[in-house]
Design a protein around this nucleic acid. Structure first.
Length: 797
RNA sequence: GCUCGGGUGGCGGAAUGGUAUACGCGAAGGACUUAAAAUCCUUUGGCCGCAAGGCCGUGUGGGUCCGAGUCCCACCCCGAGCACCA
């Protein structure tokens, strides 16, 4: 009686064997070639592991396992990005210490990850909330501070007047507080900022030398949004003030028919006394300010705005008086917070002008006169610049009106303060005399003190502000009375450098040793969510570039290669969520189907980079496949001294396909080719053992437990996971005879079997004997033949 | 709105400009079984046809090409991100 496939027993057995033998631990300074695989470390939420984590982790696990078999010294680490809002909100609600909640959650996650058989090096596990970790996050922040890249600025925050708490954008739903429904206000708050904008050009430049998916590069390039343009001053009539506008199209200056200020623009209140309808303007500003940026520019949203009556600006190009408006489509954060509107050549200005019946003056001749034209062209209606090419006119007009050529970035500086408890305390002390003074290195880490209440205070300050023993300190410089900063860092801080800590996780002298970083960096392959490619990916590149400039890390770019997986949606294609009750529990998958089946199903579901809906039925196919692997192994068909040319050939092309598909992350087609191979095996009476072994080898990264068990059954002493990856034979790929499709005038009329090297004459001759070809040709003669060897022959008549 | 992706059978999807629908799921029929499940075999894009075969077919409309799911133009729909979620 054949032993049936008992995945639970096998998986448990091997997980413990691997752990004991340290099979997956990375060796610092090994002579073998190094390989560093990285996945975005999870946020250990109370809901436990998500099937989406498994998708990303399995993919890199497959790649890491293949690399080990190729002889690399592989580092594939894992840890916890554990600071953040959900844990804090849970603490506010339940009073449970976030530290305790985090401990519980990471324990669950660790157990779940171990049950899936990932080849992580668990000796290097890190946790961003561990003081031994965040000591260095604080230390790194101080390097920014010392170089002047951390500064304070007044920033608008979302403020809920009911809860008396600052809100993340995510917590603002339709302008209202997510918890209490109160209308959210904007409030000015002094915040720590990191000057990422001073690295904008470097971050752009660095993209040239790295291997990121094209769409990731494009997203980053657009997010940085470098645009060259000019600042041009428009005088305000009858006053000493000027409106400084930013434009990328100085060539259209003569077509500027009005000026628009962002509602937040300070000039509005400065000119208050001159604005006849100030009451109306103020009302508009107040409504505009509670909206989020998205809402202000939302789809289908009618343009709104108010004219500042009594105020006129002067177009410096032609001296014409033009009206001044304020409108929410102009963002204060971008450029100078003011624009010149050229409705003839800008879509948003055009919509606005149309709605408020403002004049449209064409100054670039487009394809259709009178229609909106945003392209280049020759200048018209532009005085002495008429006839000039728009690109050249840019330079000339800037000079003419004494404008300033500037580069503007869509990228903004990074708001680095949170008035929250569950984050790294910002290690700065404020002294009346000495200003902001960094906490001396010997006093790091500044640890989070225990508090009774995790809710931010009614004045919006962090709950840390109420802990007097924390706040009241001596100034490290003058020893006078001083106050400790009570803001904490955003969750992005810990994740901006975690990949460096994996290299040297227990170092208590440095954040990571240079010698070790020189061995392991850069990361060879980093996979994560598409949703992180603008924020986290840019932030961590910024930190690494900055540290490289301080000679604290070996290279400027941390990631050699970056890919992204698609989301896993619930059944029916909607996002998985507790409230919809469509969350798939990984524990049940492991229990009911086994880790190997679960892993393989997630790889088989569909293209790795695409969002895909979970399908409980779909997992059955993979389950059957692995069971058939088990049964074939035990069928008595695996024979040592025998040959099978047909299988040998198929194995050869399967090795090629699987090897190449893994590198492309086309895991689903790799698996389908292994299914084809197994289907072929089932038709055979005898399967040579050498062929079967190679099949197990290429299957092992996907299904590590079952293959290890079957490998052992074949008498192998060494683990399959460090056995050499099989090679394929280029010569065996050639076919003696292939099917060539015959088309007549581009339509399929049949096919012939012929050598892939057959001459055109031979192929034409053979195809002309087909009945269908004869009948569809009729009595017409062949005018042209298109022959692609081994593929197709098209007879054109 | 802006930026980036995507749209192919009943479903997930495959396809260097060259056989559209591999592989898997589901469904239908059959075998085994007292029966069911499991398993195995067969069929499975639509229409016409006994068959041979023919016609149509990759979101919509156009174009390039001997040949278009693939390239170009216009449009429609869906997903992700939009800076204090991680």
């Amino acid at each position: 009686m054949m032993k049936s496939y008992n995945f639970a027993r096998i998986e448990k057995k091997w997980q413990s064997v691997w752990e004991k033998s340290g099979l997956y631990s990375a060796k610092d300074f090994s002579k073998r070639k190094k390989w560093y695989s990285l996945v975005e470390f999870p946020y250990p939420s109370g809901q436990g592991l998500h099937v989406g984590h498994i998708r990303s982790f399995t993919a890199m696990d497959v790649i890491s396992r293949k690399r080990r078999m190729e002889g690399y010294n592989v580092l594939y680490p894992i840890g916890w990005d554990a600071f953040g809002l959900p844990t804090e909100n849970y603490a506010i609600k339940t009073g449970i210490n976030p530290k305790a909640a985090t401990k519980k959650n990471t324990d669950t996650f660790r157990k779940q990850l171990k049950s899936l058989g990932f080849s992580f090096d668990w000796n290097r596990e890190i946790n961003t909330t561990d003081p031994r970790y965040y000591k260095w996050t604080q230390w790194l922040f101080l390097q920014f501070f010392k170089k002047g890249l951390a500064y304070k600025a007044e920033i608008d925050i979302n403020w809920c007047p009911m809860d008396k708490i600052g809100l993340a954008n995510e917590e603002v739903i339709g302008g209202r507080c997510e918890r209490c429904g109160a209308e959210v206000e904007k409030r000015k708050k002094s915040q720590w900022m990191l000057k990422i904008t001073s690295y904008a050009d470097k971050l752009l430049k660095g993209l040239e030398g790295v291997d990121y998916l094209d769409e990731i590069k494009t997203q980053q390039i657009n997010w940085i949004g470098r645009s060259e343009g000019a600042e041009i001053k428009f005088k305000v009539q009858n006053s000493e003030f000027e409106i400084n506008i930013f434009t990328t199209r100085p060539d259209t200056l003569f077509g500027a028919t009005y000026v628009v200020l962002a509602p937040e623009h300070p000039l509005i209140s400065i000119l208050k006394s001159k604005i006849a309808n100030y009451h109306e303007v103020e009302k508009y500003i107040n409504t505009a300010r509670v909206e989020t940026e998205e809402e202000r520019t939302a789809e289908g949203k009618e343009k709104t705005g108010v004219e500042l009556k009594g105020i006129k600006a002067v177009n410096p190009a032609n001296g014409k008086e033009i009206p001044v408006w304020t409108a929410d489509y102009v963002l204060f954060e971008y450029g100078t917070g003011a624009i010149m509107a050229v409705p003839a050549h800008d879509a948003r200005d055009y919509d606005f002008a149309e709605k408020f019946k403002l004049p449209v003056i064409e100054v670039i001749s487009g394809e259709e006169p009178g229609k909106l034209w945003e392209g280049k062209g020759k200048l018209v209606n532009s005085g002495r610049f008429d006839g000039l090419d728009s690109e050249r006119a840019k330079e000339e007009i800037i000079k003419f009106v004494k404008g300033k050529k500037t580069v503007n970035y869509h990228l903004r500086d990074w708001v680095f303060s949170r008035q929250r408890y569950w984050g790294e305390p910002i290690p700065v002390i404020h002294c009346e005399k000495c200003g902001y003074v960094p906490v001396p290195e010997k006093d790091l880490p500044v640890t989070l003190p225990p508090v009774k209440n995790y809710k931010p205070r009614d004045d919006g300050e962090s709950p840390l502000a109420s802990v007097l023993s924390f706040v009241n300190v001596k100034c490290p410089k003058c020893r006078g009375r001083a106050k400790r900063e009570t803001d904490t860092m955003p969750n992005w801080a810990g994740s901006s450098w975690y990949f460096l800590r994996y290299i040297d996780p227990k170092n208590n002298k440095e954040f990571s040793s240079m010698k070790k970083m020189k061995y392991w960096m850069p990361i060879d392959w980093y996979n994560g969510g598409m949703e992180h490619v603008t924020l986290h990916l840019l932030y961590s590149r910024f930190w690494n570039q900055f540290l490289h400039d301080l000679k604290l890390v070996p290279g400027s770019e941390p990631y050699k290669k970056r890919t992204a997986q698609g989301m896993i949606l619930g059944e029916g294609g909607i996002k998985m969520s507790k409230s919809k009750g469509n969350v798939v529990n990984p524990d049940l998958i492991v229990k009911n189907y086994g880790a190997d089946t679960g892993r393989m199903y997630e790889m088989f579901m569909g293209p790795f980079d695409r969002a895909i809906a979970w399908d409980t039925k779909g997992i059955e196919g993979v389950k059957r496949f692995l069971r058939r692997v088990w049964e074939t192994a035990h069928s008595g068909k695996i024979i040592r001294k025998t040959k099978n040319e047909k299988l040998q050939k198929l194995l050869n092309s399967t090795i090629k396909k699987v090897s190449e598909d893994i590198e492309k992350m086309a895991f689903h087609t790799a698996i389908s080719s292994m299914m084809i191979f197994l289907n072929a095996c089932q038709e055979e009476e005898k399967i040579p053992e050498s062929i079967w072994k190679d099949f197990l080898l290429i299957l092992s990264p996907f299904a590590p437990h079952i293959t290890e068990e079957l490998w052992e059954c074949l008498g192998n002493k060494k683990s399959i996971h460090i056995s050499p990856w099989p090679h394929y034979d280029e010569k065996l790929l050639a076919e003696e005879s292939v099917e060539v499709v015959i088309q007549v005038n581009g339509k399929r009329r049949g096919s012939i079997f012929i050598s892939p090297n057959a001459s055109e004459a031979e192929a034409v001759e053979k195809s002309k004997s087909l009945k269908t070809v004869i009948s569809s040709l009729g009595d017409r003669s062949i005018k042209k033949v298109v022959y692609i060897k081994g593929k197709i022959i098209n007879l054109v008549s």
